[in-house]
Simulated scan of single mutants.
Amino acid sequence: MTVMTVGSEFRGGTAGREQAGAAAAQLALLAALWATVGLDTVGWLAGTAYAAGTWALLAAGLRRAGRRSLGPADHVTLARAVLVGGVTAMVAGGVAYGTPLLTGLTTVALVLDAVDGKVARRTGTASALGARFDMEVDAFLILVLSARLAMTLGPWVLVIGAMRYAFVAAAWVLPWLNAALPPSFARKTVAALQGIVLLVACSGIVPVGVAAALTVFALASLVWSFGRDVLWLWRHRPAPRADLTVAADAAERTPELVGSAPAGRAS
């Protein structure tokens, strides 16, 4: 009964109307792409599937958060999600390398990525759901761009788009990877670099050799960033349960030694 009440409240709230509007915008964008670049059936199916998956996951996230509407920054992210749907459809449909429309949609999506965070801070509406929504849209755009560039440079480029998802999969097996990381300007810089480099490489404005060199640099920086974070998480992982029991017993037996140990030292 509770689930039905929550579901009905969600459908009756503004979030349902906001998502319906975004779905309509997605279909309109796909129709525009069909009229301009000749989006084929595969592109239509990919764009539609992306939209359906995005709206379903967002609706589930809103229900879990107990929210009936999106915040100001979430609307910006939702607009970005629609643009990413267009990019996804074009890439899946095999749109030609360096198509100006593909470059344009990607550029606007990346520019808006710098907007939603500022909107959230200025309006005081930052939330865990909004941050996760923003991150997932970013990650999927990087995956799609790396897939497009892989058609030109080779499958190795897919490592850029797949790395974040591989990290998430690894966290299912190694729960300590789920721990919160400290804020890092370097991490944010490397993440932003991926989108910019892939955009430039996919745009066709630089020679293929230059695009390959830039992509190698982006991949190397991403490997460094992930490796740095994994090492930090490993060093700060929780002690095994058996070790904690031994340490507790030792503390009870020799409280004077434990109390005199230097702060932060692992014994």
Results as ranks from 00 to 15, higher is better:
residue 113 D to N: 09
residue 157 V to Q: 06
residue 208 V to T: 14
residue 150 A to H: 13
residue 218 A to H: 08
residue 146 S to I: 01
residue 47 G to N: 02
residue 4 M to S: 10
residue 266 A to V: 14
residue 87 V to N: 02
residue 193 L to T: 15
residue 200 V to I: 15
residue 51 A to S: 09
residue 83 L to R: 06
residue 28 A to C: 10
residue 216 V to G: 06
residue 100 P to E: 06
residue 66 G to A: 12
residue 245 T to N: 09
residue 66 G to L: 12
residue 254 T to H: 13
residue 228 R to K: 03
residue 53 G to T: 00
residue 6 V to Y: 10
residue 9 E to V: 00
residue 246 V to F: 10
residue 44 W to T: 02
residue 5 T to K: 03
residue 253 R to G: 01
residue 208 V to E: 13
residue 186 A to T: 14
residue 147 A to Y: 07
residue 253 R to Y: 10
residue 61 G to I: 00
residue 136 E to Q: 14
residue 70 L to M: 15
residue 128 A to I: 08
residue 217 F to C: 14
residue 145 L to K: 06
residue 83 L to K: 04
residue 156 W to I: 08
residue 62 L to Q: 14
residue 225 S to W: 01
residue 50 Y to N: 01
residue 157 V to G: 05
residue 208 V to C: 00
residue 244 L to G: 07
residue 255 P to E: 08
residue 199 L to W: 15
residue 209 G to V: 04
residue 231 L to P: 01
residue 169 A to L: 15
residue 156 W to T: 03
residue 164 R to I: 05
residue 10 F to I: 02
residue 148 R to T: 00
residue 41 T to F: 14
residue 23 A to E: 11
residue 58 L to I: 03
residue 191 A to I: 06
residue 66 G to M: 12
residue 51 A to G: 11
residue 143 L to T: 03
residue 202 C to D: 14
residue 64 R to F: 13
residue 180 A to L: 11
residue 114 A to M: 05
residue 151 M to V: 13
residue 250 A to N: 08
residue 77 T to Y: 08
residue 150 A to W: 11
residue 69 S to K: 10
residue 244 L to M: 13
residue 30 L to P: 09
residue 259 G to V: 03
residue 31 A to K: 04
residue 74 D to M: 14
residue 11 R to Q: 05
residue 231 L to I: 06
residue 172 W to S: 01
residue 80 R to S: 09
residue 62 L to V: 04
residue 77 T to G: 15
residue 76 V to I: 15
residue 124 G to K: 05
residue 114 A to Y: 01
residue 250 A to F: 12
residue 203 S to H: 02
residue 5 T to L: 07
residue 72 P to R: 11
residue 87 V to W: 03
residue 113 D to E: 11
residue 78 L to F: 06
residue 207 P to A: 03
residue 187 R to Q: 15
residue 58 L to M: 06
residue 86 G to C: 03
residue 48 T to N: 03
residue 73 A to P: 06
residue 31 A to P: 07
residue 38 G to I: 09
residue 49 A to L: 14
residue 223 V to Y: 02
residue 222 L to N: 12
residue 113 D to V: 01
residue 137 V to R: 01
residue 91 V to W: 11
residue 154 G to A: 14
residue 141 L to H: 08
residue 19 Q to E: 13
